[in-house]
Write a protein that binds this DNA or RNA. Sequence first.
DNA 1: AATACGGGGTG
DNA 2: CACCCAGTATT
Length: 366
Amino acid sequence: MVWELQQLEQLQDQLLQWYTQNQRPLPWRASRDPYRIWLSEVLLQQTQVATGLPYYLRFLERFPSIQDLAVAPQADVLKAWEGCGYYARARNFQRAAQQVAEHGFPKSYADWLELPGVGSYTAAAVASIAYNLPHAVVDGNVRRVLGRLLAQKNPSSAELQTWADTLLERNQPGIWNQAVMELGAVVCSPKNPRCSACPVQQNCLAFKTGQPQDFPAAKTRAAVKEIYAVALIIGDSQHVYLEQRPKTGLLAGLMGLPLEPFEPPQEFKELKELKELKENQENQENQELALERLSRRLNITSSTYLGTIQHRFTHRLLELHVYLGNDEGSILTRSRVANYALATLDHKVLGLLKGTLEDKVQGSLF
DNA sequence: AATACGGGGTG
DNA sequence: CACCCAGTATT
């Protein structure tokens, strides 16, 4: 066992008392409605509280009950999620809500785990917070707090779950889970942890080392892959031709501007000084071919180069060459942009158009 | 065990 | 820029 019983109880008391006095007044903490708890947990997956909070409030206003969510058009749900990222969360949440609306809320951790979009973290969070069941959450905050308490550089997820289970205060598991996460969010932060304000400082092995920020070690992340595409704007920033993205891959299933990917030459990214000119030329050719494929698919007869956008996703860097297409006769349907859930990428591209039109009269572009 | 999957906050 | 965020699903 990692902690002596006496030390364990002291640690629990210290953290719970701190949480009682220092917790942020977050709206989902004012309720034990499983729907609201669940929504908050899904919205906050890989999303900071400050970012997720306005989505939480707007989502509940639009879908006050799980029945409202279950019967809504999926497009409405995605619109409420617009800009928040990881859009599979929204689709899974609605699908799960439809199951719950029919069969009722799960009453056990194992049954929560069955729902789409509910993994070990969310199942434990809802089970503990809404149902007072003794399941310990392990999220990024818990990983950091436990990694520091035990001075672990590279804790495995199995180890973390074991330690979290041991530490769990079983009389109020929901409060306890939130207390550990709160500590990780506001005191035991990744950089410059505020150890002087920490209620469990004397039980922290990382603090004893004098270098608490070194625990746990930063996760090694896969290199960001560069990807390339051309985009065609047919219309203006308010009304534009949109199409649905493929069901898998980047921004899967969302509506968006038509894109056509292209491959840069193998050594393009390395930008060797001697070869730079030649490879840029080659890249240009692949780009033109992509624009031709896209134009042919949409029956676009001519287009004007607007500019190039760099958009960084967590794991991709997209270089997007944007063209304004001339749809002679306005064959293609223009959708009202405000009615669709567009990715931030698409809004950025449309913003490029807006900036261009400030300098030029639209008619002069052709 | 690694990778895909958004977008934004933070130092 | 690097790292992280109240992770999950897929490979």
